[in-house]
């Protein structure tokens, strides 16, 4: 009888404010969620009116002759030191060729240990923007930065 008279301890968790909080949080996060990841690729477009004096630095010109063909022209102190052309079946194959060749080009003896400071890409009219970005991506993945696009008239 004495036990019956005792009040039971209510140990139930009140879920209502917890659910309210979770619902609010879910709504906020769903509204602010980003479903498409947009990234950016920085291009350094140089400009100036005077021709720069040749410096003891390495540069590379990449001419895109088509979606799967390119010519790499390595220059040191303004002079061409190495030229190599590729003609592949697809852009992906061209990029694979880049990843094979570029590490060797970067160690070319004519560069005397200098790093390739800038890359200038000249696209062809046949090359779409998507294919050009793939090539730029391939160059960046090979550790080449300071990439610019040459505003060609379109052959």
């Amino acid at each position: 009888m004495s036990l019956r008279a005792k009040k039971e301890l209510n140990n139930e968790l009140n879920l209502t404010p917890f659910i309210d909080l979770l619902s609010t949080l879910v709504c906020f996060l769903l509204i602010s969620a980003v479903w498409v990841t947009v990234a950016s690729m920085d291009l350094k477009q140089s400009h100036g009116t005077e021709a720069a004096a040749p410096r003891e630095s390495a540069e590379m010109d990449v001419t895109l002759d088509g979606p799967a063909s390119a010519t790499l022209n390595l220059k040191f102190a303004g002079k061409a030191v190495h030229k190599v052309s590729f003609k592949e079946e697809s852009t992906q194959a061209l990029l694979a060729k880049f990843s094979e060749t570029l590490p060797q080009i970067k160690k070319h003896p004519a560069l005397k240990g200098a790093l390739i400071e800038s890359v200038l890409v000249s696209p062809h009219q046949k090359v779409t923007h998507g294919e050009m970005v793939s090539v730029l991506d391939g160059l960046r993945l090979q550790g080449l930065s300071n990439i610019g696009i040459k505003p060609t008239e379109g052959k």
């Binding site: 950016s40 690729m41 920085d42 291009l43 350094k44 477009q45 140089s46 400009h47 895109l64 696209p123 062809h124 009219q125 090359v127 779409t128 923007h129 294919e131 050009m132 970005v133 730029l136 696009i149 040459k150 505003p151 060609t152 008239e153 379109g154």
Partner: peptide, 21 residues
């Protein structure tokens, strides 16, 4: 890509040197 490159040239003339593609 040539059209995009020409557009970049126009941007370049207006001192927009850092183009984020």
């Amino acid at each position: 890509s040539t059209d995009v490159a020409k557009l970049m040239g126009i941007l370049n003339t207006q001192q927009y040197d850092v183009i984020q593609l």
